[in-house]
Design a protein around this nucleic acid. Structure first.
Lengths: 190, 190
DNA sequence: GAAGTGATGTGACTTGGTGCCGTCACCATA
DNA sequence: TATGGTGACGGCACCAAGTCACATCACTTC
């Protein structure tokens, strides 16, 4: 018989999101989250660097995914084509169960500045990773970072639509579509 | 005789930046900052919502400045022209004494994730304000937010150069130059 | 001169976050 | 079977950020 139930990390995430939606983010203490997961505060902080991170963990995986995909893009690909390929690789990992998670996550983040800060930085780091990967392909500045920021923005805008339970499109489809729209608008910008 | 010395807020900012550069951000407590400014912790939190904000206060002024300048731009101006005018108005307020402040601020922020988070959100809020102001002029999405983000990025990039004591150009000049470079790179993006 | 206003001080409190140490299951190896 | 190591967790004490209710005192105004 096991001493501990498995999947401590996942249980903590579930407990946190549940409590946040039930009582609000501020009204929920780390002790409560750990309690509901059958763990203690110490263990919580062993899995997540702080209270906010329980909602954002996993973005490091996205960073690697994007960078690897850009590395793997054919040498003939233009910067934006490489970014598009990377977004395809990233968004392909978002299955429908994660969709509900995103839908519940969004309002929590929207209601708390501290969470928006974390989100803003994670987004910037994502763009930074893509930029670096493009640099390795020889793409110069500021082309690399512009392409990267455009791509990450498309991904974020698309994610917001995807998290809305009304739509039925894939995150990949949505992202591609948003990216096309952004490119068109850019071309018409002066 | 006055009971309190004037400029409490400014004294707190100076004390904070001094202590941060002397001992580091983490090693400095809010009590120390308040002590050096001849005040107490409670008073500190009356002026700044949290410890980080002492380094970012004043950005709300920038928000208004940008929005007002965009409102004041001639109706015939294109989105990017309006943004350019707003950046001119904003950067004109950065005199040379603020330059040293920026130079000392940068390394502190660069060394601490929590400060980068605050910075990232402030930047996003700035872009949001410009976007909203463009909307009021009838500029549609995503043109408005693209122009806004491009402008704010130019401002940030230029600020980084400006904070470097080596250069002698005005922040306004630098910002205009960076914005031109970004536009050129965008045009060549695929 | 009395009352109001606004900026500050005092001190107690909650909670996020850290650090050290103990506990117990599991595994490897002899 | 015995022994020792490792990894995941609990317990506890502690610090500092941030909140709150209440007191204080200069300055203003009528």
């Amino acid at each position: 018989m096991a001493r501990w139930e498995p999947n401590a990390r996942e249980r903590l995430v579930r407990a946190a999101l549940d409590l946040f939606t039930e009582q609000g983010y501020d009204a929920t203490t780390v002790n409560e989250i750990a309690d509901r997961a059958g763990l203690t505060k110490t263990t919580f902080f062993r899995h997540f660097s702080d209270k906010r991170e329980v909602l954002f963990a996993g973005q490091d995986t996205h960073t690697r995914l994007l960078a690897d995909a850009i590395d793997a893009a054919p040498g003939s690909a233009t910067p934006l084509e490489a970014v598009r390929a990377a977004l395809d690789a990233l968004t392909a990992t978002f299955t429908d169960d994660r969709r509900e998670f995103g839908a519940r996550l969004r309002p929590v983040i929207a209601g708390h500045t501290e969470l928006q800060e974390r989100s803003a930085l994670k987004r910037a780091k994502l763009a930074e990773a893509v930029t670096d990967a493009l640099h390795k392909r020889g793409v110069p500045e500021p082309t690399a970072s512009l392409a990267a920021e455009l791509g990450i923005r498309a991904y974020h805008d698309a994610f917001d639509q995807w998290a809305d339970p009304a739509g039925r499109q894939t995150l990949t489809e949505l992202t591609r579509h948003v990216l096309d729209e952004l490119r068109a608008a850019l071309a018409a910008l002066d």
